[in-house]
Computed example of a mutant assay.
Amino acid sequence: MNNITSDNHIIIRKGISDDLPEMLQLFTATIDEVCKKDYDLQQLQAWKSGAENEGRWIKVIRDQYVLTAVIENKIVGFCTLDQGNYIDLLFVHKDYQHRGIATMLYQKIEQEALLHHEKELTADVSKTAKIFFEKKGFQVVQEQTVNVKGTSMVNYKMVKHLIS
């Protein structure tokens, strides 16, 4: 296992297929707890249903650059980079919010994009994560309404221009 960094007992490492069950659990629990102030119950249920799409998650691990944050052998966060410049997923466990974990993951993802000479990073960002991404230098390109299993939800197409 090639650990990338360790800070305050947080290890950032590449995600592997064995991480999927824990990542899925973190994904659904985080949506339930952290996002409930921004989305209603029906929206949360529709969003969480993405965890049922096993094929998509297998593809994430196989095709994307996946980083996990681990404390004492427990995954407390993960972030994925698709096509070299699209942040597909960024989630931090509900019990580990506001400890710099998302920032650590994001910084490693940005470094990876810069390593491959990407000019910008993009993301479709929830209402909950919008402030975090703005603090990292992202700007809203447009507010969009997405349809998830027949339920409409607002999120934001965001972009950050990278300076290498």
Rank of each mutant, 00 (worst) to 15 (best):
S6V: 05
G100P: 12
N53F: 08
K149V: 10
I75H: 10
G55L: 07
R13E: 02
E52K: 12
L26S: 03
V125I: 03
D124M: 05
K48I: 01
S6A: 02
H9F: 14
D19R: 00
V146L: 13
V141G: 05
E33R: 13
I16P: 03
E54V: 07
K157R: 13
L67K: 00
Y106T: 03
A51W: 00
R62G: 12
A123F: 00
T30N: 03
V146I: 15
L115I: 03
K14L: 05
V140I: 13
I75G: 11
Y39D: 04
N53S: 04
R99S: 10
L67G: 01
I71V: 13
T103I: 06
V159T: 03
I4A: 11
I31R: 07
Q83S: 09
D95F: 07
E52T: 10
K59L: 12
K157E: 15
I58A: 10
Q42D: 10
A102Q: 07
L20H: 06
H9G: 14
T151H: 02
K136G: 08
E143R: 02
H117Q: 10
Q107P: 10
K149D: 05
G50H: 00
A51I: 00
S6Y: 00
I163K: 15
T68F: 00
T151E: 02
N85C: 07
D32T: 15
K14H: 10
L90N: 13
T151V: 14
T145K: 08
T28H: 06
A113K: 06
S152I: 02
S126W: 11
K74V: 09
Y65H: 05
I11V: 09
K14S: 07
D40Y: 07
S164Y: 12
R13F: 05
G84N: 09
T28S: 11
T145Q: 04
I71R: 12
K119R: 14
G77D: 09
A69D: 07
V92G: 01
L41H: 13
A102C: 01
K37V: 12
A46H: 05
I16Y: 06
